[in-house]
Amino acid sequence: MSEHTLKATGRKVEGKGASRRLRHAASIPAIVYGGKSEPKAIQLDHEKIWLAQQNEWFYSSILNLDIDGTTEAVLLRDIQRHPFKQIIMHLDFQRVDLNAALKASVPLHFIGQEGSPAGKSADVVITHELNEVTVSCLPRDLPEFIEIDLSNLKVGDIVHLSDVKLPKGVELPELKLGKEHDVAVVIAKHGRVEAEETAEAPSAEVPATKAAKKDEK
């Protein structure tokens, strides 16, 4: 598990007005909650967080949140962005018990696809059905990403959730819910098959269209 530290300071004044003033001062209002401590209002430097949030680890790693010299282990649970400006409006962090298992979303990295038998075939379509998975593990075992090797992928192959090779100490809770939850992660099939399936799919009529046709009779 890589170490990533974010610096923050506590804030006593809360509310929309206080948050607006913070943003004008290039700071981000945030909250830390969970564990045995009370929720704590904090603020972080916008420029530093803007750079950090461009990395995958910001979303899937245990973060060391340094609040006025006291460090807490946290996970990012929510990030609110401005609808069109490059501004982060608010962050939610959840405290982590380093001795208790947690659930978190981890991105998938696909490697070897272009050199695989399926990847070399011009008429084969390879689809990634999932780009991330929810894992369960101790914080020290939380991976920043999970790698899926597709170098042997052939036409007609389906990589299921149960085929994903997991790091030591990491589980997929979804697989404990039954075989129907062992969903496809990657599918390789001929492009013409996909085209035929699309063409054969029945066109759904919206109720308004049906009513209109009924009125015409």
Rank of each mutant, 00 (worst) to 15 (best):
A26K: 14
K217N: 08
P139W: 07
L138D: 07
T198I: 06
K7C: 03
A188E: 00
N99H: 12
T134K: 10
H190S: 10
G112Y: 03
T134C: 05
K154N: 11
V206C: 04
S162K: 07
K214C: 01
G115C: 02
I148W: 07
S60M: 07
E47N: 10
T209D: 10
V159Q: 03
L130P: 05
R21L: 12
L166E: 02
Q113Y: 01
I187W: 03
D149H: 05
V74R: 13
D78R: 09
P39N: 10
Q113E: 15
V96Q: 12
I126C: 02
A188D: 00
D45W: 03
K165A: 14
G35H: 13
R81H: 13
R23C: 09
V185I: 10
K16C: 03
A204I: 08
D141F: 05
A184P: 07
R20T: 10
K48Y: 10
P39Q: 08
T9R: 14
V96R: 15
G34N: 11
C137S: 07
K36N: 14
A208F: 15
S203N: 11
A73C: 00
H90M: 09
H181N: 15
I87T: 14
H109K: 15
N131T: 05
D149Y: 09
I111D: 01
N55K: 15
S121E: 15
D182E: 03
V183F: 01
V159K: 03
G112T: 07
C137M: 09
G178P: 04
A18F: 04
Q113G: 04
K189S: 02
Q53L: 15
T209E: 14
D123F: 00
V13H: 08
H190I: 00
S27L: 15
Y59N: 02
V159L: 08
G35P: 06
I187F: 00
V96F: 12
